[in-house]
Simulated scan of single mutants.
Amino acid sequence: MDVQVWTYIIVGLTFALYIAIAIRSRAGSTKEFYVAGGGVSPLANGLATAADWMSAASFLGMAGIISFSGRDGSVYLMGWTGGYVLLALLLAPYLRKFGKFTVPDFVGDRYYSQTARIIAVVCALFISFTYVAGQMRGVGIVFSRFLQVDITLGVIIGMAIVFLYAVLGGMKGITYTQVAQYCVLIFAFSVPAIYISIMLTGNAVPQLGFGSDLINEPGVSLLDKLDGLSTEL
């Protein structure tokens, strides 16, 4: 079988796994649908959050920004990551404490204001649409490359699959689907990084490889070389 056939098989099996997880974890109540019944372990939540960070919008978008903007683009990467940390520390615990399912509900009850609730709704919609637009564009690009289809069709396929397991499983299904996605992504990220580090520096640990000298250019570290490329960009 050629590469294209293997691609169809692997992608198909991956999404079949996601849908199977969603069906197995399908929500049986409103609480399970919105907050997974409060029974997801911290480890699973952490893996799901990490998978969300390593999404199409962040991975493709941030890589593109840094490639075109050089080191100045890393500001967006730090802001993106810092935003996740701030949300996890300053907002998520209080949503759980107040027993609310959405940010507008929490803000409205916390500040006893319907106006604050409406402002929170507008902000949530604006941020969500901005994020989803980039996410769906990334999905369309990925499907168009791997499945050899038009980007628009790729977006539709991706939306249909996400809609299916989101509706079936709710937050519980999405969380465990994200856990599976994390395992796939961390493997896909780690293998090329380790291989490139070995090829360039002879060091199998990418983090240590940054400070190691290049095999073909003794006395020049990989980090210095990358800094030079970023400056030139």
Score class of each variant (00 low, 15 high):
Val155Gln: 03
Pro42Phe: 00
Val5Gln: 01
Ala50Val: 13
Ser212His: 11
Leu185Val: 01
Ile198Val: 15
Gly138Ala: 12
Tyr131His: 10
Leu17His: 00
Val103Lys: 14
Gly12Ser: 03
Ile127Glu: 12
Leu13Ser: 04
Thr81Arg: 08
Leu89Phe: 02
Leu164Gln: 01
Leu89Met: 09
Glu232Met: 10
Tyr165Asn: 11
Ile127His: 00
Pro42Lys: 12
Ile156Gln: 06
Pro206Ser: 02
Ile196Asn: 05
Ile65Phe: 01
Gly209Arg: 01
Thr115Lys: 14
Gly211Phe: 03
Ser67Ile: 02
Thr14Arg: 12
Thr102Ser: 00
Ile141Gly: 09
Phe129Ala: 15
Met1Lys: 00
Ile156Ser: 08
Asp150Gln: 15
Gly38Glu: 09
Met171Asn: 04
Ser69His: 00
Ile10Thr: 09
Tyr8Pro: 06
Val85Pro: 14
Val184Ala: 10
Ser29Met: 02
Val149Arg: 04
Ala56Gly: 07
Arg24Glu: 03
Ala48Ser: 15
Gly12Lys: 03
Tyr112His: 12
Ala63Cys: 06
Ser74Pro: 09
Gln135Arg: 08
Thr231Ser: 05
Gln135Leu: 11
Phe187Lys: 01
Ile215Met: 04
Ala27Arg: 10
Leu208Ala: 00
Val167His: 01
Ala133Asp: 03
Phe163His: 08
Ala63Leu: 14
Thr7Lys: 13
Val149Asp: 01
Ala36Thr: 07
Thr102Arg: 07
Arg117Gln: 04
Gly28Asn: 14
Ala56His: 09
Ala92Ile: 04
Ser69Thr: 04
Val5Ser: 14
Leu229Ser: 09
Ser230Met: 02
Leu91Met: 06
Ala20Leu: 03
Val162Ser: 11
Leu233Met: 13
Tyr131Ala: 10
Ile198Lys: 02
Ala57Phe: 04
Ile151Tyr: 08
Leu77Thr: 04
Ile65Met: 03
Val167Phe: 15
Tyr76Arg: 00
Leu91Arg: 13
Gly169Ser: 12
